[in-house]
Design a protein around this nucleic acid. Structure first.
Lengths: 199, 199
DNA sequence: ACCTGAACACCGTTCAAGT
DNA sequence: ACCTGAACACCGTTCAAGT
């Protein structure tokens, strides 16, 4: 029978801290995340984490960073093996984003609330851009194909992103009417293209 | 020269705690909010707040509640003295919501993140419904006037609310491109009605 | 390099006791 | 009723010291 060695974290305490921190976040919420408890869980002294993260905020930043990376990966994956139809690609991207939000509600909250902080790290800004580029590509391509109206990428993209993000956020925080189901997501996707006016 | 009496909080410590807590939230962020510091600022013992809020979460809940109340008031005010045009009313409501979000970014975050907690108080749920009713009214009226497409209130309202909330949230957390200005809000409002498809 | 153990200045919460 | 003061079990952070 294999027993994971007591020295599990040797050379990898940093990664172990991040993994455990995310579990705690998911299971017990952000308020319950304590460096000391993390250290206890991993069997190291309470001062050990400071070797890898200068303070608690640094750990949270790193956690947000992994979140943005995984979000980018998920969004990219959603576009693979698809036809060129913009409607189809948008549908896949929206579902991927909402899926990530539902599966990582607290982490997503953390990812976005970190920006409240004026001194967000460069790495974090870069990670944000990496995935928002995916949305930009989608929009430019949609315009090229004539499936999206003309206009600057920003003027077309910001409303789409707002809708996407808003729905994901509402769903993840449980603010939608309780009987909201799959159909609501279909409504949102259709809305992005044709709006709420009649016809 | 008037000197505020030392006994400022007598009979009103509860309100004083909420007021001061919101100031702290606004000025120093949610992480810096401590019951003990609040008590110090108001010149009472650190145990005094527990007379009015059973724990820290209760104070945060109460704070969120005042937030929802003020949001409802602001949204209601935005509809006063307007014509019957749905487009006009929507415009005013969106601007009011976004204005509130920008002016109360951290509080809004608090208001929505509290719902993560499964045991949100009845009062909080009621406050949420009070303002979301305003949006429902607007939508029903828009449909009656033929300015909004047919469909259940939910299927039409959820996408609109998602867009509204998403834009406000992005703007408040500084996630929009730095050069985003007033025009972006106009784009969002136009988008709600006509979508992103051509024509 | 990486970690420990003790120390410091903070927390939130509880509870007897005061007025 | 409302508040105090002490106590308890936690924090995050720092720093000399160990291997």
């Amino acid at each position: 029978m294999y027993t994971r060695p007591r020295s599990y974290h040797h050379g990898d305490l940093r990664a172990a801290l991040l993994t455990r921190a995310e579990e705690t976040l998911r299971e017990k919420g952000p308020a319950a995340l304590s460096l000391r408890e993390l250290a206890r869980d991993l069997g190291v002294s309470h001062a050990a984490p400071s070797r890898h993260f200068k303070d608690k905020q640094a750990l949270l930043d790193a956690l947000a960073l992994t979140g943005f990376d995984r979000l980018a990966t998920a969004l990219k994956a959603s576009q693979e093996g698809l036809g060129e139809s913009f409607a189809e690609r948008l549908d896949a991207m929206v579902r991927a984003y909402v899926g990530f939000a539902l599966g990582n509600a607290v982490l997503l909250d953390l990812m976005y609330s970190i920006k409240h902080d004026p001194e967000a790290s460069e790495a974090l800004v870069a990670a944000t851009e990496r995935w928002s580029d995916l949305l930009v590509e989608l929009i430019v391509e949609g315009q090229r194909r004539g499936e999206l109206r003309a206009g600057t990428t920003e003027s077309v993209g910001v409303p789409i992103f707002a809708t996407l993000h808003g729905y994901a956020n509402l769903a993840a925080t449980g603010m939608l009417p309780p009987d909201t189901d799959e159909r609501a997501l279909d409504d949102v996707i259709a809305f992005i293209l044709r709006g709420a006016a009649p016809e």
